[in-house]
Amino acid sequence: MGSYDVIFYILSIVSLGAALGVIFFPSPIYSALMLAITMSGLAAMFFTLEAYFLAGVQLIVYAGAVVVLFVMVLMLFDLRKESQPFSGQKISNFFKAGIIAAASMALIIPLSTVFFIRTEKTKPVTTVDLAGTLFTKYVFAFEAIGILLLVVLVGALALAKSRGGTHE
């Protein structure tokens, strides 16, 4: 077991533990902090996958912008103690989630051994490759994302201006 493996196991334990913290802390503000830890752990995992630019974007967009957005919105709400943060039939829901998890693992692990073709390091994907692919092969999707973001901007403004409900 090399240092790469040890780093992977530490990062996965931190990320999965923080993800469990997101769903088990009763107070949403602690969930937001745990979400920031999960995002940072995943950014470090992108580093181990040699996706350096992606790791930077993950830190800026998720650990920076999205988590700050969640915390800002939580600030607007009245953070009184929730009487019952978990929904009623908790045990059966966890049972269902466990069954889906086991089924997906049973599917993914054999499938990934089938599709796992290369193990030797030939040529890692660099940021230059990434930019070249993004602006040539996927340029139409890139433009579509731009239009989508414009629509989202207008929609968020419309939602923020409305007084809640369309009948007043």
């Binding site: 997101v22 769903i23 949403p28 969930s31 937001a32 969640f70 919105v73 939580l74 709400f77 929730e82 019952q84 943060p85 978990f86 929904s87 908790k90 829901n93 966890f94 269902k96 989630a97």
Partner: peptide, 8 residues
């Protein structure tokens, strides 16, 4: 599945 808070 288990949380009630929309933010979470």
């Amino acid at each position: 599945l288990v949380r009630k808070n929309v933010i979470v």
